[in-house]
Design a protein around this nucleic acid. Structure first.
Lengths: 223, 223
DNA sequence: GGCGTTGTTGTGCAAGTGTATAAATAGCCT
DNA sequence: AGGCTATTTATACACTTGCACAACAACGCC
């Protein structure tokens, strides 16, 4: 797109500004994620990414040794942002374990984590985990971290109910709850408009409480 | 890799056989799925696919107008194979609803549906659903069909327990159960070796029974 | 058995890819 | 103000990609 409206010094070199290194890296990573979400992994070319970031392609090599490194850092950034928001919900100090678990589920099943673009990115990257050991390990670690968080909260919730599950039970609960959250997350991302706001979170909380054998929240209930 | 050991008619053209049209198309689609699973969507080049199918690249254009058409047909074939296997488990005539539900879950959480390659393919294709409306609609239809199957069995299971849920309850149960299956499917595909055989199915069945408020099956129910 | 049909091969090409590197300039330091 | 240096642009290059097309040969048909 030649900018013909300029006072046109015919061989003018493009104007540019020097940004801080951190800023530039972040911009490039953001542009990478946008491009991948739109065009897929190999469809996101260095030139497309550079255009989106408002720089020229050559600059990318100044900050990243190669395209593979850029993609890897972009994937790491994506995972960070996703888990960061979710984990924040677990940090509420003055709440019961059960409230914190509910908040965790709610955070995971609403915007911005329920988001089609985020899901596209996740699927695109994870689709290559089978062939790319680096991606596979990154995912494995993220997954286990997530599941351990779940397991810890579950342990607290059950402890508050004066129940003492063994390690196997705890692990099974964590696996099931993780699956519930993941599955609902996918449904929400791919068909968000089929659910009313908060509906997915409500379904998730109810399913998890059933899995843990907790009585419904609002009132005491005889069984 | 020149095959120097041959009796070397120096400009020998490659020998070939004429296959039936259906057979060739299937071979090409299979080779496409293999290549996509290994190298990603754009990483699966026509030459790679042709090599895998044992033909040369030019032949592909004889059967498919372009690469996009080949990919679309490959995706359709993948979806067909996945849902076909899962739905078969629901067809057992002489089984209680609850047994059929359990069989459905078990079928979905074991090989060949739990498979890293199948998952890679699913993720790779679905990752572009956000940008490709054709893919998005294909998925939507497959998802709703799957969920309706689940909803139908759930209705039968609850009816057998003499419970009469309203439509909203039924829908919520189906959404939750669908999520449980999907989530466990993902966990199994991505980290299959972390689970013992049958463990995921057992976790899934227990979680679903909890969701539906069913008593455990025969754990303590010795005859 | 020759012959035509058409499935199949091989080659060519323009466009686009990631990477390498030289040239230019923005902004800090003194 | 005026250089210095690192950031940024611009260009070049070898390679791959999807697609087009002409030559070839396998197989059915007379």
């Amino acid at each position: 797109m030649p900018d013909a409206a300029n006072p046109a010094p015919m061989n003018a070199r493009r104007k540019f500004r020097r940004e801080g290194e951190e800023r530039r890296r972040q911009d490039l990573i953001d542009a990478t994620l946008d491009s991948v979400a739109e065009h897929g992994l190999e469809g996101a070319t260095l030139r497309t990414i550079a255009l989106r970031a408002g720089v020229t392609a050559g600059l990318i090599r100044h900050y990243f040794p190669g395209k593979a490194d850029l993609l890897q850092e972009a994937y790491a950034a994506l995972m960070d942002r996703m888990t960061e928001q979710a984990k924040a919900a677990l940090l509420m100090e003055d709440a019961s374990p059960r409230q914190r678990l509910a908040a965790f589920v709610t955070a995971n099943l609403n915007a911005p984590i329920i988001d089609q673009r985020v899901f596209s990115l996740w699927a695109t990257f994870i689709g290559r985990a089978g062939a790319d050991p680096t991606l596979a390990r990154a995912h494995r670690e993220g997954y286990l971290g997530f599941r351990n968080e779940v397991e810890a909260v579950v342990a607290e919730v059950l402890a508050a109910e004066r129940r003492k599950p063994d390690a196997g039970e705890l692990r099974h609960h964590a696996i099931a709850i993780n699956a519930i959250i993941d599955g609902l997350w996918i449904e929400g991302c791919l068909a968000g408009e089929m659910f009313s706001p908060g509906e997915l979170a409500a379904i998730g909380i109810k399913a998890i409480e059933a899995e843990l054998g907790l009585a419904p929240e609002k009132q005491f209930q005889e069984k």
